[in-house]
Design a binder for these strands. Structure first.
Lengths: 196, 196
DNA sequence: CCTACCGATCGGTAGG
DNA sequence: CCTACCGATCGGTAGG
């Protein structure tokens, strides 16, 4: 018999990672104890170590899962035939969608990566820098084609990425507007702000 | 004889707060120990308590100093006679200037306020919400006057405030462009994105 | 998966 | 401002 296929969130390890993401988001990585996590999962602290190697491993899985996901999408966009503005719109929408649906993990990756132990920390920083530079390259090309305003590309990247992480405030709030409307408004403001 | 006037950063307490802001920014509030801080200040951990009451008090001073500073400025802008776009520009520039010159404290207030003990935590949340609502009110008025695009005002606030906190990436980087150029670019992108 | 437990480190205090 | 020290809690292991 083949092994039963387990989708994400069905293995105990995934449950642990999921609950950890919630706690790391709420209290931060350092302020979350393995006893907090164990309680949330419904076992004793020692039992967690049958599924994970360390507290740091959980953070590492979360951070690199998010980073790889975004990087893979960027690669696809780089190779398509859209213009700069369209590429930016596509990336922005993907970021927003990813953020809205996985905001705990994305938020943790964004905020708590500093607590990664080496060599993961350096590795993550390199990936982060790489991502930003490639995004800036798309914008720079847009500037050269006069499709985008003559602004510093890395400043534009900075605004884009940070605006996306602002979705957290929306998520936490009473959610007056829909996810669709939120996406439309953000894309409108940023893309119109970039257009020449 | 009158007491000698001490400007900020000249008292030992201010030195402690300043070094703490650096550490809280670098490692986070929870991961910073009073021994780390003592070493940076150049005394033993126990000696810190002659100047401060607790670790939490330091965070509280940092968070409320930043919040009050921004709130005071907002009040002035609310009462001037500029249009909505001009008001937003003024606030955005003030935020950016404040961020660039005090980025450690601002960043800590932004990121570590969750670790405030009650009742400061609730208090801070109220001030934060209040600030955002008043900023949204300015934008909403702009939308009603057709000066600003018909977007959800709180979405616009979300983008503005998070874009500002992105200055941290700029600060940490090799600082290719000047603070002036950074400010111009950010104001340009965001304000043009909002204009109708 | 649990009980029992480890050494290390934490924020903070007593007393001088 | 320091030495000495407190109880609590931390991440993690041994052994079953």
């Amino acid at each position: 018999m083949p092994p039963i296929k387990t989708n994400r969130n069905s293995t105990k390890k995934e449950v642990i990672i999921d609950k950890a993401a919630q706690l790391f988001m709420e209290k931060g990585f350092s302020a979350t104890s393995m006893r907090d996590l164990a309680e949330k999962v419904g076992v004793e602290a020692a039992s967690l170590y049958n599924h994970i190697q360390s507290k740091a491993e959980i953070l590492q899985i979360i951070c690199f899962r998010v980073a790889n996901f975004l990087l893979e999408h960027l690669e696809k966009v780089e190779n398509n035939k859209q213009g700069a503005i369209e590429k930016i719109k596509t990336i922005l929408r993907f970021h927003l969608w990813h953020m809205i649906n996985n905001y705990e993990e994305v938020q943790v990756a964004d905020r708590e990566w500093r607590h990664l132990p080496e060599p993961y920390l350096s590795n993550f920083k390199v990936q982060r820098k790489n991502y930003r530079q490639r995004l800036a390259a798309i914008i720079e090309k847009g500037v050269r084609c006069k499709e985008v305003k003559p602004i510093d590309p890395s400043t534009a990247v900075l605004i884009m990425l940070h605006a996306v992480s602002g979705v957290e405030s929306w998520h936490r709030s009473s959610q007056k507007i829909s996810a669709d409307q939120l996406e439309k408004d953000i894309v409108l403001i940023l893309v119109e702000g970039l257009k020449n």
